[in-house]
Design a protein around this nucleic acid. Sequence first.
DNA 1: TATTAGCACTCTCATCATGAGAGTGCTAAT
DNA 2: ATTAGCACTCTCATGATGAGAGTGCTAATA
Lengths: 348, 348
Amino acid sequence: MVMEFLDERSKQILYAVVQSYISKPDPVGSRFVTKKYSFGFSPATVRNIMADLEDLGFLSQPHTSAGRVPTDKGYRFYVDSIMVVRETGEFDSGEGDFVQQFAKKLENIRSDVNNMFLEVTNSLSMMSNYIGVVTPPRAEKTIFDRIDFIRYKEDKVVAILMTEEGVIKNKIIGVDSRLTQDDLNRIADYLNAEYSGRTIDEIKNLLVRKAYREKALWDKLIARAIKIYEQAISFTEDDVYVSGLYDVMNLPDFSDISKIREISKAIKDKHIILKLLDELSDSEGVHVFIGNENPVEEMKNLSVVASTYKERERPMGVIALIGPTRMDYSKAIYMVDTIAKCISRTFD
Amino acid sequence: MVMEFLDERSKQILYAVVQSYISKPDPVGSRFVTKKYSFGFSPATVRNIMADLEDLGFLSQPHTSAGRVPTDKGYRFYVDSIMVVRETGEFDSGEGDFVQQFAKKLENIRSDVNNMFLEVTNSLSMMSNYIGVVTPPRAEKTIFDRIDFIRYKEDKVVAILMTEEGVIKNKIIGVDSRLTQDDLNRIADYLNAEYSGRTIDEIKNLLVRKAYREKALWDKLIARAIKIYEQAISFTEDDVYVSGLYDVMNLPDFSDISKIREISKAIKDKHIILKLLDELSDSEGVHVFIGNENPVEEMKNLSVVASTYKERERPMGVIALIGPTRMDYSKAIYMVDTIAKCISRTFD
DNA sequence: TATTAGCACTCTCATCATGAGAGTGCTAAT
DNA sequence: ATTAGCACTCTCATGATGAGAGTGCTAATA
């Protein structure tokens, strides 16, 4: 990532173009720039600079006598070297910093984690008009608190898995019908006593190793525990909360039906989103993917602003905003960052 | 609902127009009808009949010299008096009756009810290209099997509610921190012994009445049980499974961006859907709402084919297809009917 | 009497030409 | 180094034109 050099004036022009285009997706011309932002230059000068910026690949023209439009590279430079990230959420409407307000509100619903993520996702999309995405803590990384088993019907057992983070999952599993509730309790007691405090993944490994090591003097209880535990933790669904397709449809960027189809297709398939977000599941801070920087083919016309949230320094899940490349990056970054931190805080 | 009279010829023409328009949304002209369906009439005759059908309100013309298009009333007559409901799911592709195939597949995943509904919804929309909607059993109507409480963290309890139908819900509730696990067990035992086999709603009423009657000699246990039970069963989310917006966007009916916005808006808000489906939550068989017949304003340009599914003769929830008024009613009805019956069967 | 052939008429839609408007690039002047 | 001036290019809205499809009506036909 070479840091391109740009003189101050060029930066100003690029800034003006990006700002203007972000607030309204019309190609921006030299005259407009001089009128709206009163630098000291004439339109002709601006034209020269714009031509330079175009040569450098920061701007492009939809056609020969239209104004200029930022390229992905232009946005990238804007984000890296020009933009200042907002320190407050007071945009449009001046009702105070609603991101902060939301963050406060969040503290109250942290008891029900699953519900919380739903809430966060909705709020994200509502406040930004972009698509909000939240992945709950990846099951494997959460910390096992305890597990319980309850007999259910003839040959089934409901396993209730509780984690430190407040994620409660239940799953119906089929078991040998000769297992009594007492047996189940013993298994649960064993698992709880032995493994509380470790991550789900860790435990899985430990159990497997244990099983292997003690193959000879095979303990019936442990054997059962392993088997039943593995069933209980295998959650097939990759749950991702996504919200805001409707809001995004109202952006002028997607006034074209084919664009909507494209974006719907991309976010319909949650695997695509997971694939995208997995990229950064172990990293820190806010990440920005602009257009074709996107590791996922289906989103090369979209931008993604994402951040992991953490629990005691371990990254747990991801929250993100997906929108057009013509995104209000400053706003988006502020939002994602603030809310990610806020979630992290509620976990600690 | 007066049964309109129509001579055989008129029916044939109406049938031809609807069929043709369903398969391709172009206004259908007299010449086309005579060519495609070889009745014995000439285009001129067809024109006369069409004019009559227009007078009766079954057809309409987009403009003076276009072909005819069915009105909602036209579809209604078609559905009531002309159409034959398919007895098989072998449409387009001739891979056998895939609805039946799906039904078989369903038997295997009935263990995890929540997952099942997701699956059903997705399959519905995929097979039909319309929007699939499924409401899980309304919590109040399901039959209480048992409840358990597990202490969680300092001042919280996880309530696990199991119903006859296989719906397992968990909820974190805050409780008096002096309640011990023993207390919780006693409460659970009391509730399970006393109320297993009744509907969630019934129990609520019984408990309230009990509380009232025994106000004087107030039993601490019962008081607690009531309080905690009420918390446990209050599920705020109206969960509705909806799927297939993307598929529907590919229909030519929604090639217009504003139409997509409209439909998205309607199904985004799950309350709207709930409101619609509540209309028939106590009735039987397949219901068809065509366009403006729709009780919900937001859907007056859409059609809904819906059916309740039942458990032991009591209606539990609804499955539905939402699509354009130009819907393949025969196919949709067959699908909804078959799958609803299939779900009912897996519950018994 | 019911049906049909014939024909004038209407409306849509794609195509094309036109011209205003916006913005550029270049050159010459400052 | 900057800017004014100007010719040039491209888009977009507008309106004209004509082919195509389909109708409604009337007169002829079985």
